[in-house]
Design a protein around this nucleic acid. Structure first.
Length: 265
DNA sequence: ATAATATGGTGAT
DNA sequence: TCACCCTATTATC
C-alpha cells in the first residue's frame, strides 16, 4: 500500500484525530519504549506527510515514521482492541487509536535532523509548495533510465513502483529512456498526472489510474483487476498487447511496448 | 506447514 | 548489483 498517497492519507486522518490533543503512547513490542514514554501525555501540534515520510510534531519532539514495504497503521474508534505484541507504537487520542506495525523507521528526532532529512527529498506533487522545475532539472541531470530516476526520492518524492509504471504508461514513455532525454512536454504531463492521480489515491485509499472513459465505471468502483493500466498485468489495459517486465533500478517495471514508444535513443 | 511475494530503502561490495 | 531488514497475505506442498 505505501506509496505517497497512503502516507498523505494517514497524515490527513491522524491530523484530524490527534492535532491539538494530548495523546497516550506505548510500545507493546518494546522496541520503542523510550520514544513512547516521551510521547505519552504530550500534545500533538502537527502531522504532515513529505513524500513517503510521516512527521508528527509532538511537544518539542519530532516523531518520524517511514513504513517501508511492510509497515502498516491500523486505526479504530475507541475502544480499540488490545494491541498484538508486534505493535511498535500505539497512539491514543480522545476518541481514536492507531497501531503501527512493521515500520522501517519509527524514531524521535529533533527539528534539525528532520530538516536535513526533508532537505534531501525532491518535490512532492501532493504538497502545494513543490516546484516541478526542480524535478525536471534533476531528471535532465542524469543519464540513468527515467524508470530509475522516478523511484529516486531525491528526484521526486512519493512515487513507488505502481505509480512509476502507470505514469510512464500515461506519458507514453518507455522506462528505459535515458532520463536526460525526456522531452519537457512529456515531463509536464507526467507531473500533472502524478499530482492528479496521487490525489485520487489519497481520496480512495488506493491507486486507480484507469479512467472512467476506458472502464465505464467511476474510479471508486473499479474492481481489483481493473485499477491499473499496466502494473501487475499481463496485457495492456489500453491496447491489449503483452506487457513487458524489464527490471529497472532493481525492481520489475511493467510497461507496454506499443503504448510507450518513446524509446531508448 | 512452508515458501514466495509485495506498493521501500540502506549499506556493503 | 546484491544482501538484508521489517510483516502479512497468498500460493503451493
Amino acid at each position: 500500500m505505501p506509496e505517497g498517497h497512503s502516507i498523505h492519507r494517514l497524515a490527513r486522518d491522524h491530523a484530524a484525530w490527534f492535532v491539538g490533543h494530548t495523546i497516550g503512547a506505548r510500545s507493546p513490542q518494546g522496541r520503542f519504549d523510550e520514544g513512547a514514554a516521551r510521547l505519552n501525555g504530550a500534545r500533538v501540534r502537527a502531522v504532515e506527510a513529505y513524500g513517503k515520510h510521516l512527521v508528527y510534531r509532538v511537544d518539542d519532539d519530532v516523531l518520524h515514521v517511514h513504513l517501508g514495504l511492510f509497515g502498516k497503521f491500523r486505526g479504530w474508534r475507541l475502544p480499540a482492541p488490545a494491541p498484538r505484541p508486534n505493535v511498535r507504537l500505539a497512539l491514543t487520542g480522545p476518541d481514536r487509536e492507531v497501531q503501527l506495525v512493521g515500520p522501517m523507521v519509527c524514531e524521535l528526532v529533533d527539528e534539525d535532523a528532520i530538516a536535513a532529512l526533508l532537505g534531501r527529498l525532491g518535490p512532492d506533487p501532493l504538497r502545494p509548495d513543490s516546484d516541478p522545475d526542480r524535478a525536471f532539472a534533476a531528471l535532465r541531470a542524469t543519464r540513468r533510465p527515467i524508470g530509475a530516476a522516478l523511484l529516486d526520492q531525491a528526484v521526486l518524492a512519493g512515487l513507488g513502483n505502481v505509480y512509476r509504471a502507470e505514469l510512464l504508461h500515461l506519458a507514453g514513455v518507455w522506462p528505459g529512456l535515458p532520463s536526460s532525454a525526456l522531452p519537457r512536454e512529456r515531463f509536464d504531463q507526467l507531473w500533472a498526472d502524478a499530482a492528479r492521480l496521487l490525489e485520487v489515491g489519497v481520496r480512495l485509499g488506493r491507486i486507480v489510474t484507469v479512467p472512467q472513459s476506458l472502464s465505464g465505471v467511476a474510479p471508486s468502483r473499479a474492481g481489483r483487476g481493473d485499477r491499473h493500466l499496466v502494473y501487475g498485468r499481463r496485457s495492456c489495459r489500453v491496447c491489449g498487447g503483452a506487457v513487458a517486465r524489464p527490471v529497472i533500478a532493481g525492481r520489475v517495471c511493467f510497461a507496454c511496448p506499443v503504448c510507450q514508444p518513446v524509446a531508448e535513443t
